[in-house]
């Protein structure tokens, strides 16, 4: 099939970018990234710079890949990262616009590659359970309701790809944050730090200049791992409860 691509090309973080038009051929069995590989091989042969994009596992689990195809993060297929998207979902003559995630917190590094380290900093602010190696009790000492454990797993599936931020009109990181806050908050092991975690992670996200949530659900629609708005409500609940009841000075005094 023949395709017309309009791809965002930007040399580096400090230069301006623009959309550049390419014509290319693809087979319906290819994955989207393989289609770009083929384009890149041709560009290199012509002495042009290949299109830079992040990718690694190419099986939808590492969260490296991701860009916006025709206005939708990760492209048209629901619950699918771009690396798992196959060309059979497009047709001959299609015109596709490829753009990087756009958010103040995710500056473009080059072409379709953005800097998502803000996510790491949000996790560093509290997205963990403080248990140093060797200090754990027996794994079966604390039973966990299967329902809670399953729901924690639902939330824990987030791959940190950033599509939720890209799709959100406000560039909010709520879905991402809420996935971690819910995952840990649902488990008994996560209770001691639950309030502190919500306060710290939310505060960290503000510092990174993510927008606020309007509960519109674009994030949920593009999330490749089915993270739900329900988790954002959990985060709100934890945050609100924490901001009314939590006294930071008690922690500081130890």
């Amino acid at each position: 099939m023949k395709l017309t691509l309009h791809i965002w090309r930007q040399k580096n973080a400090s230069s301006a970018g623009k959309m550049v038009r390419y014509e290319t051929d693809a087979s319906e069995h290819m994955s989207f990234l393989e289609m770009l590989d083929v384009l890149n091989e041709r560009l290199i042969a012509q002495g042009e710079e290949p299109v830079a994009f992040d990718h690694d596992c190419r099986e939808g689990i590492c969260g490296s890949c991701g860009f916006v195809i025709n206005g939708v993060a990760h492209g048209p297929l629901p619950s699918t990262t771009v690396c798992q998207l196959h060309m059979r979902h497009f047709k001959d003559g299609d015109e596709l616009y490829l753009e990087p995630w756009r958010a103040a917190a995710f500056p473009v590094i080059k072409d379709l590659v953005v800097d998502r380290s803000a996510f790491d900093r949000i996790i560093a602010a509290g997205g963990y359970i403080s248990v140093s190696t060797g200090s754990a009790v027996d794994a079966n000492a604390l039973p966990v309701r299967k329902k809670d454990s399953d729901m924690a797993m639902d939330a824990a599936q987030c791959i940190g790809c950033g599509a939720c931020v890209a799709a959100c009109p406000n560039a909010s990181a709520s879905l991402f944050m809420s996935a971690k806050i819910s995952h840990l908050g649902l488990l008994p092991q996560g209770q001691p730090e639950r309030m502190e975690r919500a306060l710290n992670m939310v505060a960290a996200a503000n510092e990174e200049l993510f927008g606020s949530c309007t509960n519109i659900g674009e994030c949920e629609a593009v999330c490749p791992k089915g993270i739900r708005l329900e988790f954002i409500a959990r985060m709100n609940r934890d945050f609100l409860k924490a901001s009314w009841t939590f006294r930071a000075d008690r922690v500081e005094g130890d």
Binding site: G134, A139, N140, V144, Q189
Partner: peptide, 22 residues
Amino acid sequence: VNIIDQCVAQGVPFAREYGGLL
């Protein structure tokens, strides 16, 4: 044996039985 203890304490949501055990 210790690995499983450590991971569960960190919040790794391993599959569980209805009784709540691993």
